[in-house]
Design a protein around this nucleic acid. Structure first.
Ligand code: SF4
Ligand code: SF4
Lengths: 126, 126
DNA sequence: GCATATCCGACCAATTTAGTCGGATATGCT
DNA sequence: AGCATATCCGACTAAATTGGTCGGATATGC
């Protein structure tokens, strides 16, 4: 029940991106937010394949958001970065007792997503 | 963002305990729910120090709930078992930018607890 | 006093997370 | 064209966490 560094860095970087509006390079973000450069590069690779940002190669390149910041939710970002999306991997199930816990996890996950879905990137740059 | 086995087993065991009403030993639960015995013992140690269950030593011993099953929430159980309670460990913060992400984590955690608090043990034994 | 329990701490193996490195590829600029 | 500056990509490693084990101490019922 913990947010990974990947997600934390990712969100911070996205906030950074939102504020700047122009293309900004990983190197710059890495300096501003004090995030290991190589690690941040990998995070952006994921964000890109989730189509949340797009890259511009070459000199003066970097990343920009693909959508307006009020169209991107925190949930989008977390989902793109967090590998273990499911709160519990239900292998339903060699156990003798019929499982009731499952419903709890489902409920939890739903409320989790809902909460994170409500918060848009644009809400974070006040 | 994943529920640990500890918590999953713990919840299952508590449900098991709720159904039985009498003292039931770790050994029995371990057999019924197919959970490694030694591991389950450690889980119960934590549940006990959180005062959710109490032990009876010696022959025909085992565990019972300390409170009525409608007084114990899933959140109580998870909290007792999950080490990394905080979704993000905020070391606020050597970063240059003022952090806005923090509010999101706080909000997330709050909604998380609320959701799990609503579900009582007694709701799970239908 | 013995069988059956919980209790306790150290220990270990597997997995996951965080971070690194080397190099390929794409682009802007002079 | 050629160089500097970027992203891109995969393999690799180190540290932390998780899941699980073991040996023995302690408490209790019969
Ligand atoms: S949550 Fe329940 S159904 Fe799912 S794997 Fe665990 S015990 Fe089985
Ligand atoms: S959430 Fe924000 S304030 Fe907290 S440690 Fe991360 S960057 Fe710092």
């Amino acid at each position: 029940m913990k947010i990974s560094k990947r997600a934390e860095y990712g969100l911070m970087a996205m906030v950074c991106l939102t504020k700047n509006k122009k293309t900004i390079s990983i190197r710059e973000i890495s300096n501003i937010e004090v995030i290991p450069y190589e690690f941040l590069a990998k995070i952006f690779a994921k964000l890109e394949s989730a189509k949340l940002v797009k890259a511009k190669h070459g000199a003066n390149g970097g990343y920009v958001l693909t959508k307006a910041s009020n169209k991107i939710s925190v949930n989008d970002i977390i989902s793109a970065l967090e590998g273990n999306k499911k709160t519990v991997d239900c292998v339903c199930c060699q156990r003798k007792t019929k499982c009731l816990a499952k419903d709890v996890w489902a409920k939890l996950e739903k409320s989790l997503n809902k909460t994170l879905e409500q918060v848009k990137l644009s809400d974070l740059i006040k």
